[in-house]
Design a protein around this nucleic acid. Structure first.
Lengths: 240, 240, 240, 240
DNA sequence: CATGAATGAGACTTCATTCAT
DNA sequence: TATGAATGAAGTCTCATTCAT
């Protein structure tokens, strides 16, 4: 009875996930790099975490290229340089692989955003900082592909979408609202913007979508576009 | 995608496509509606075109819900109320069906946009008109799903993406540039905006993506957001 | 998502089952044989039922030879002379195929047994009749293999076992008890036998198991053994 | 059964088998129990034999529950509390494990049976003794499961079946024939029974099969049934 | 034109077996 | 010896596509 009861049995993957091997892996590798009493060959845990990451990376490539439904785990394995079956030591099934891919590669972005609400730098300066972070940490990274995936397939994985909204977007937006409110009080931005931090994010979204679809036929200077947008938003205005 | 059909053989569906049955269908139905010498039972061509459209509509539903790779033609047929084989009388294969779906349901939007460049109404008024058109003709329509599909799967169908860019976007953007240039000269919008009509479209894109992913957990007043954006873009500014 | 949600979708097989195509198939084929206004080529329904039966027969062969777990549907298809996928037009999955195989090929045995309770022939004569029925209708038939399968795999399909017990065995045993009681009153059989009709069936069971395991190394004259058993059970006894 | 190992290569497990570690194990443990110069920690051989037995026990559980084809060595290992690979230190492969399981757990039953032919106790008394042995040593033991396994899977392992017949059944039956012949001469049992000692065994077989399949829906008083059978067989009869 | 049964390539997943540690 | 991660052959099941009716 090959394909039955996918819910029932718990693969080791589940356990592995809970111990956050990703984090440990990084530590382990750093230790290895530092060479302090670290074994030349990485330990089992480290190797396991490394494998996991290799698979996730390969999966991102394949999913980004063909979409969830059309991607083949066979190709993921090939790209990761492992055997087909190995994937199943780390992930229960294709869907789980996909979901953990999104979940884990999406989370780290939150990073320092929340702290930003505390600072008191001018909003414009902050916006320009965010623009840089976006360009360097997202747009020029694989994270861009993760977001593309989220956009493309998110509807069929409402759990993931909700998670992303709750854990990432709503937090960022909350921080943004604080900042924008202060800026609006100072007259730096129009009052109305406070209600729609979305507008700050819109060009970034467009950048990702546009370059994905028309990048080679009609390239886009993302940084400049975002700068233009900032210039408009923060332009000194007559009254308010 | 099992069983790749030899690229060579062209089914009748392909031939049918070239004669643009959609156009014919419209004519036929109008004739029927007008009742001028039209047979009670719609003619063959009309019925054929109707079928085609039924299939396309059903296909849009399925593709939008599950993505290209995961959608099943079986379900498309069921939803369209026809037999599976019938699809192949109208479309060469799944991929062709998908491409024609995008191609045909995307085109009509261009509509009167190009004419807009000619008029001389104030840019702001025009922007507000465009906003209404977007909300009513796209956002509140199935077209929203077509665009979503384009965003989600476009990368794997570069021909379609290119087509869309060439036939739709570049034309609209060209018209927009003309308008924006005029408006900038009048000081209605910042000069820099001329280079990036994308910024005008960004909120619309965000609206589609956002509601698709987070619509039920965090609804968005699209019209108001777009109005806010327009207010900011066209705000009277100090110098500039 | 290939192997997901086996419970969700209902294949046509389920519907087909409910209309008992087996019965219809027989009728159809008889009509065909009789030739009365019957089409030379069997109709769709008939062909479908025929197919179903072909699959069941092939399945019985494979399951009997290798057991449920080790049998390959691929081989079933090959043996049935059809494509692998065709099986799934008639049965939801391997397990369903197996269960319906048992269920349908086990039922017909009940046949006239229940009527036997009504008759008034001497118990011994009846026992000998049953012996003949067993030998000719079960032991020398494919039904023997079905029972073997039931014995071998029944534990893992409690539903089937229960069904078999309820629909077949308990009825036969009930009829037997009636007969035995009457016979015991006449002194034909020992009173104690009434409580254990199982003892009447035991040699039949042994025959099936024995020939399956040791048939070629140590053949068994089943008829004679059963006759011997009857002779002993119905032997005229001293007192009671 | 994936990856058929080349028949040629013999693992250490195979070698171990030939030296009959089971026998050695018993000796070792007895020595341990007696405490004569036995190390506190059981010796290598003893531990090895113990492991072997642990594996066999776990294997019996799994095979009995799911059948040979559906049982997973992974589960056997888990149940035995060892690693998967360890199984292969003791058994060449799954099939070998299964065969040795049957072979070794089936053999011991022969026990004193052969000696019985020599004694001169009345046949009825002997039959009742056998009944007790069966109930206590087989029916109420794991051996019942071994026999069930034999019945269920024996056809696909003719070697095992033949072995079992040769080493166990034929011997028992031979002893029985001697006893029955003597009993028949004394008029204790009908002459015809001599040819079919099977009939003596049939109720036992039925008991095992019946309780396996219908035990919970229709329990069976095995001892009483067997007693009834004995009463009938040995009932004093009119003439012969 | 339309149907839907049939096909079979190919996807996902399992699991017996191996092997570096 | 013992381990359990890794392998990959092979099994189950799906679904795009064909074709006889």
């Amino acid at each position: 009875m090959a394909k039955k009861a996918p819910e029932a049995r718990k693969s080791r993957a589940a356990a592995a996930k809970k111990s956050r091997p990703l984090a440990r892996a990084r530590v382990a590798r750093q230790a290895g790099a530092a060479g302090e009493a670290a074994p030349v060959r990485p330990g089992r845990e480290a190797r396991s975490a490394e494998r996991r990451e290799v698979i996730l990376t390969a999966a991102l490539d394949e999913f980004a290229e063909r979409g969830f439904g059309s991607a083949r785990l066979d190709d993921v394995a090939k790209r990761a340089g492992i055997a087909k079956g190995t994937i199943y030591l780390y992930f229960r099934d294709k869907e789980t692989l996909f979901q953990e891919l999104l979940r884990e590669m999406l989370t780290p972005i939150i990073g320092g955003f929340e702290a930003l609400g505390q600072t008191d730098i001018p909003a414009r300066q902050l916006a320009e900082h965010m623009r840089d972070v976006f360009v360097h940490e997202v747009f020029e990274t694989r994270r861009k592909d993760v977001i593309r995936l989220m956009i493309a397939e998110g509807r069929r994985f409402p759990k993931i979408a909700e998670f992303y909204h709750r854990e990432v977007l709503s937090r960022i937006f909350e921080a943004l609202r604080v900042i924008l409110k202060r800026a609006a009080r100072r007259g730096e931005v129009p009052e109305a913007l406070v209600e729609f931090p979305h507008l700050l994010a819109a060009p970034g979204l467009l950048a990702i979508v546009w370059t994905g679809l028309f990048g080679n036929v009609s390239p886009l200077d993302v940084r400049k576009m975002m700068q233009t947008h900032i210039d408009i938003l923060f332009a000194p205005r007559s009254k308010s």
